[in-house]
């Protein structure tokens, strides 16, 4: 086993990530405007930007979901118990004592168990909650003939806002955790695509022979 700079984040993966960053920030900025937490831009403009950003994000998510399942990448997010207690212990204790992060990234497993679990929760709970409630809100015209439509709109809106703040809390924690072990070190791979991961000799040989562009020359 050797540590090598391997391209773990494909171009689409990185575009997905950064476009999602931009859109989520835009959605949070315009969303908080719509709910009245600030008045930096006009309400009407905020509604337009929020709606369009959401639609772009939905398209992006559709592509990303397709990509995840047509490549092997969906497997990155399968939760695993192995190593989870150690990672939790690290964040709750070890990090204060200057211990090393217990998880060693692998090419086929670039997220630590806690990360994988969190991302999975994000993908199957929070994101669906926000886009389903958002779509329900956006498509109000199709269900407004129901009885008590104003009550249900209130429910939909509150779920949407609760989910939005949960996503915002995730973003906050996500960015904070990048500072553990060096902010730049953690951000760089999502820009260049290359990250130092453990690679077996066989894999190294495979990359060298079949995918040389995925392996950065040492030194």
């Amino acid at each position: 086993m050797a540590e090598r700079l391997v391209k773990v984040y494909s171009r689409f993966n990185r575009i997905w990530h950064w476009l999602q960053v931009v859109l989520i920030l835009m959605l949070f900025f315009t969303g908080t405007r719509i709910m009245g937490l600030h008045t930096l831009i006009p309400f009407e403009g905020a509604v337009t930007l929020h709606t369009l950003s959401a639609l772009v994000l939905l398209v992006l998510w559709a592509f990303a979901t397709f990509w995840l399942f047509t490549t092997e990448n969906w497997k990155q997010f399968i939760p695993r118990y192995k190593g989870l207690p150690q990672v939790i212990r690290f964040y709750a204790w070890g990090v204060f004592r200057g211990e090393e992060h217990p998880y060693q990234k692998a090419y086929h497993r670039r997220h630590n168990p806690l990360q994988a679990l969190t991302y999975l929760a994000l993908k199957i709970v929070l994101f669906p909650a926000i886009w389903m409630s958002g779509l329900a809100y956006l498509l109000y015209t199709f269900w407004s003939p129901l009885d008590d439509q104003s009550f249900w709109l209130m429910v939909v809106a509150n779920i949407h806002i609760l989910a939005a703040f949960s996503v915002a809390t995730f973003v906050l924690l996500h960015v904070y955790l990048l500072t553990i072990g060096g902010f730049r070190v953690h951000v760089r791979p999502m820009i260049s695509g290359f990250e130092e991961v453990e690679v077996s000799a066989e894999a190294e040989a495979y990359f060298a022979a079949e995918k040389p562009e995925r392996l950065k020359a040492e030194g």
Binding site: I34, A157, N158, I159
Partner: peptide, 11 residues
Amino acid sequence: YVPAGGMGLGG
């Protein structure tokens, strides 16, 4: 529900 009209439980 009036967006910006006041904070609901979700908010």
